[in-house]
Design a binder for these strands. Structure first.
Lengths: 219, 219
DNA sequence: GAGCAGGTGTCCCATTCGAGACAGGAAGCG
DNA sequence: CGCTTCCTGTCTCGAATGGGACACCTGCTC
């Protein structure tokens, strides 16, 4: 009950370099992941028990504990893998096409729609929202400043106070703020049944983010 | 390639009365069933290999052969279980509510839509169509004659030649003919995206079947 | 025909898994 | 408090599985 999520627990106990018996382990994990998402949708993350999970996944409780410390470790793994997939998707863009980063981002969200709906929705857990926000803030810090220049290219204020801009950027407040905005955009988008395309969402969100950065740079 | 389906092969080799390790066996079979339907939809039943099947199901080829003689045995089991479910659905009606039999029937088809679409569709195999027709003909022989009286209650001709009616019924030609009509109705219904409710389909199909019986009884 | 590629069906052994029991903790209730 | 109930996390042992090898077969190409 009160474990309340560790940040970045060691995902597995052993070094996991086995190559025999690998299919069984992967299958067990896959079945557990699918069952978890189903049960979050139905009953919410906090309410669900390991017993329900393993019953739904057609896996023994013992097998669960062989693979994960508890249900938090499972959801952390799922989340980490989704983040990893996201970083790969935007990573192979290089540093060019900054606007494409956010298109890829929303495409990723769409691809993992069920996961994000479950995790960020009302049945999820505040932990997801916080972690998602933190990951997004990191992404913005690393890849986000080109977003600055997508449109609204360093207008009047930015030229006037460059130091303030850098400060507001690097102290994490503004990226965190923008990240929260993106999280809200995601949940809205998914709960509305994705009324806009990923590209449209990227454009709209980028404009809003740019406006925030522009305003913050005037501080 | 040339096994071409045995009729009612012994589903399993052993007596299967184990109660330990049961979950693993059931899970393996479930994963294989789902993978089979997916692969029929994608590549067609004849084209698919055991290797593809087990890879999709995340199960070893050895495990497949421990449970089934070959892919035909697997599909026969699936089909048999669906038929069993159908018979249970219409069986607990007793002999009353003859019209309800066909409502239940189409409800069953809708419930197992994916299975029947795959098996009866163009990617399936002629074997399914034949077996389905045979099963339906049996159902009609056992439960079908009340269908006679749903409407068109033994009009003029029936009273005139009762013996001929019984003969045409029991020699299997008419039931087989009507069964083929039902199979066509099913495939049309599913491929059109189920434009009518199960009840509507039952009513329409029953009327057509009754007309056929009525006409046949005049021979 | 020979060679080759790919699918089938069977086998063995190490590994993982399922079933069930166990102690311990949480929470609810009298 | 005592009692019950449910969930957790760990353990053991027999059982099913995975990996990989094997011989056999079929169809294709040279």
């Amino acid at each position: 009950m009160s474990r309340q999520m560790s940040q970045t627990s060691q995902i597995n106990q052993t070094n996991q370099t086995n190559q025999t018996g690998n299919l069984r382990v992967k299958r067990t994990q896959k079945l557990l992941r699918e069952a978890l998402i189903e049960l979050i949708e139905e009953r919410g993350f906090e309410a669900l028990t390991v017993g329900e999970l393993t019953e739904r996944a057609m896996v023994s409780r013992a097998a669960f504990y062989r693979n994960y410390q508890d249900k938090y470790a499972l959801v952390e793994q799922i989340f980490a893998e989704a983040m990893s997939a996201l970083m790969n998707a935007v990573g192979d863009l290089g540093q060019e096409h900054p606007a494409e980063v956010w298109v890829r981002f929303f495409e990723h969200i769409a691809e993992y729609e069920r996961l994000y709906r479950a995790l960020l929705g009302s049945k999820g857990s505040p932990w997801f929202v916080r972690t998602m926000r933190a990951s997004l803030a990191e992404l913005i810090l690393e890849r986000g400043h080109p977003l600055h220049s997508t449109n609204a290219t360093h207008a009047t204020h930015a030229a006037r106070a460059p130091h303030a801009s850098i400060h507001a950027f690097s102290d994490g407040f503004v990226p965190g703020f923008v990240a929260a905005m993106f999280v809200e955009a995601i949940t809205w988008w998914l709960e509305q049944g994705r009324p806009y395309s990923p590209r449209e969402m990227a454009t709209r969100s980028s404009r809003l983010a740019a406006a925030i950065f522009k305003e913050a740079s005037a501080w």
